[in-house]
Design a protein around this nucleic acid. Sequence first.
DNA 1: TTAGTAAGGAAGGTCTACTAACAAACGTGA
DNA 2: TCACGTTTGTTAGTAGACCTTCCTTACTAA
Lengths: 385, 385
Amino acid sequence: MTTQVGARRISRALRPTGKVLPEHARAHNRSLVLGHLFHSGPSSRADIARSTGLTRVTVSDLVGDLIDEGLVADLGVRSAGKVGKPATLVGMRTEDFVVVAVDLTDDARMLGAVMTLTGDVVARREVPLDGRRGDEAADLLTDLCRDLLAAAPAPVLGIGIASPGVVDADGVVVEAPNRGWYGLPLAARLAQTLGVPVHVANDANTRALGEFTYGGAQDAAMVLTVGQGVGAGLLVDGALVRGRRWAAGEIGHVTVVDDSSSEEPLPCACGRRGCLETVLSAPALRRRVAGLDREAADAALASVGRLLGVTLAPVASALNLAEVLLSGPPELLDGPLREAALATVRERTMPVIGQELDIRMATLDEDASLTGAAVLVLSGQLGVT
Amino acid sequence: MTTQVGARRISRALRPTGKVLPEHARAHNRSLVLGHLFHSGPSSRADIARSTGLTRVTVSDLVGDLIDEGLVADLGVRSAGKVGKPATLVGMRTEDFVVVAVDLTDDARMLGAVMTLTGDVVARREVPLDGRRGDEAADLLTDLCRDLLAAAPAPVLGIGIASPGVVDADGVVVEAPNRGWYGLPLAARLAQTLGVPVHVANDANTRALGEFTYGGAQDAAMVLTVGQGVGAGLLVDGALVRGRRWAAGEIGHVTVVDDSSSEEPLPCACGRRGCLETVLSAPALRRRVAGLDREAADAALASVGRLLGVTLAPVASALNLAEVLLSGPPELLDGPLREAALATVRERTMPVIGQELDIRMATLDEDASLTGAAVLVLSGQLGVT
DNA sequence: TTAGTAAGGAAGGTCTACTAACAAACGTGA
DNA sequence: TCACGTTTGTTAGTAGACCTTCCTTACTAA
């Protein structure tokens, strides 16, 4: 009797799965070492071995490579007096390399900076857009990057760009209406022109990355950015969610006010009515509280908080989020709005979801997008997140 | 001048990152080969090499291992007449191994089955719970598994269990109120007792896995299960989302009807009012349409669809989902309800989100949970998804 | 026949991380 | 003070994993 083997085909959505070569494993372990040095500061090889689970021999080998490449430096003997042979410390040369970061969030100007690997800004540029769009805007960006590269006091690891709109994993701006960019291969074009690695991502996603790496965000978090519009970046298991068409986080145009609501749905720039942006964007919030006394303003902000809470409740439940970070004007967000949003989410979800969730302000300042853009480079070039 | 290196510490939520050894890479590539054979059916070694990107030499080596282990069989020469030496086919021995799958979704009985690797049921068992809870229920489950193991006509790869409640990644049932299980290490206990690998996951999540592997679900999808209650499983980049406290997908108790709604919020078993379960569970839907004529029933189902659409819109926007699959009674779900839900999501989201999203019925039948439990084993033991 | 093509295997090389063993440098306690 | 244990980092050897190169086999096409 012959056995029928695999006679039945099983359909499934095809997924690109990649082979893993020894060198990939090596690269991963190298990133582990770098990541430890980045997050924990100077350490001995033995410390790194304990932290990563690799043997001291392997760590020594990897560290040797990193020293040869110049990314890591030998710092001499640790002074601390413990038993045994004193450790020699090695540390990442965070001050001897820089990253160029650009923030394109603002419709009126481009912000650029040269930053060290610790996130300190060493040079800053600001260029008015003056209404430029499409290729003209892209050319202006190229010039800005060239300028920043020239201003860099140390070797540049790469360029990170926080762009509005939908950006795919290869750094192609799929659509950014405010810049007139559609299908623009921004990363590839800039890398070609400038000869430096370039990473591009959506500005809200970038902010989420920044909060995760520098701001202590949990690995199941949403970072909600409130500015001219409203955007979000989602972290699931510490990785950014990109979504079917790289549009994950585009939460600004979800309807939150409709005809059955107690308030009137306002027209939105997208052509529909009652979008989250019509109540939660910074201009919308300012309009809402304009001319009101403190008490009335607080009530107005709380009402927006409740709308936000209603919108967040299904997302928090579906993903079992640990926290939602609000990034934007604290005088508008960090008060009745935040508190009402949190209370509303907790009212509208089961305890295991609501009690685990916190809504707090993001920790990074106005440079959050720049910082996130820098993290894009750290992550893309060094594997450090 | 000395360079200050890594002097500044950067806080971050700690994340367990693991080293990668060559053997892990090997295991990954082995799963790649098995996955190709599982999804594409019998192939030549050269086919596998082209599909995986590995060289023919490496594939031959891996296939040799798999044949030695008995998971793969040599099928002889392919008859097809092309130029060159004819290929010898190899295939996964999907009929020569079985999986034990158990579905604990139902409050009244436990369902068990022995299934081949292609998902065909070769034996079936059903055990009434008769109100048993806690350890008694766990003992009954152990007996059921033993019975199924005895009924297996071929070597058993492992046991997969779809449990209600919150289940962590190690197969510990954190809380399943209906079974009286709290912090029960179900997978470990059964594996110990029965001497077979055991994998446990939440039933809705399990269903999502099943739909992904056997049902052709996209890799950015939500599978919404409508039965006694409402649950969901979320796939992001083809991986199951577990969430902060392994409670991802617990969407049944999100408030969808409140005092400002046009209809009255109904009390829910969770103690609150207006939860999604109070309108969307199978009993709730049946109550809603009971005694109504066709037209009125359709309108009633559509109204629930709109409530579902309002709830899904923020989730679909945040994650940019490709599809939402409805798993449950088609006579209730697949009609006005589904259509109203889809229309509502599209009304309430921006085009890039709404137009990309489809809401359709799940393709697996009433054995969806069992099938998903089997996939748990395939995934856990063979790395095949 | 002869040439060309494709499959599969054998040999040998490189890369990776491991174990085992050791020297160096320190604290501890008799 | 000095032997001893501890910790660090290195050297040497080993096993695993995949690669490239070359060969044989077996078929089609002209």
